[in-house]
């Protein structure tokens, strides 16, 4: 909230609403399109959808919080995906995740106050041989120990200040 949202994106959202308004069950496709446009669903966007489809805001919000595919906060500059698949899990993914939470001071699914990192858990990334594994954006880090985490995070922090 409070962040300026691009009016052009609302124009695009309007097009989507017009397209789906008279369809049966328009809410999900409109919300998915809105998330694609804005990256997340802040109150301004949900309120716009509610008015456009003439349904209560609390219904839009109810759907947004029911499905894990919808996000209420923007992603940080870097998205950390911690694999919580079986192989990673048995090789200590939870400890890696815990260390990340500790270092970043946030819970899973949240973004750091400086907007640098978003931390999320994910299903199997398909490289079980590297377990436990995390991805930061498109970079893969495997065979991790919790103590590897501070060094990895520093790399991204340095990249920002540079």
């Amino acid at each position: 909230m409070g962040k300026k949202l691009d009016p052009k994106l609302f124009e695009a959202l309007e097009q989507v609403i017009v397209r789906y308004k008279d369809h049966k069950g328009p809410l999900m496709p409109v919300m998915q399109a809105a998330q694609d446009l804005f990256g997340y669903l802040p109150i301004e966007v949900q309120d716009y959808i509610a008015r456009g489809l003439d349904i209560p805001l609390v219904k839009v919000y109810g759907v947004a919080t029911f499905y894990s595919q919808f996000k209420l906060e923007p992603n940080g500059e870097n998205t950390i995906s911690v694999c919580l698949g079986t192989a990673c899990y048995v090789r200590g993914a939870q400890k890696v995740l815990d260390r990340l939470k500790e270092e970043l001071g946030i819970e899973e699914g949240k973004t750091t106050p400086d907007g640098l990192f978003t931390l999320s858990g994910t299903r199997c990334l398909g490289c079980c041989g590297l377990a436990p594994v995390i991805m930061i954006n498109d970079d893969v880090y495997g065979r991790l120990k919790p103590d590897d985490i501070p060094g990895i995070l520093d790399k991204y922090r340095r990249a920002r200040s540079a």
Partner: peptide, 25 residues
């Protein structure tokens, strides 16, 4: 609130054990 009064300031949000009746956001 929603059907009779059509004020709609409360609804069910979240899921499972986290489900709660509350206002948006």
């Amino acid at each position: 609130c929603q059907n009779i009064q059509q004020v709609s300031v409360i609804g069910a949000t979240n899921r499972g054990f986290d489900t709660i009746v509350e206002s948006p956001f």
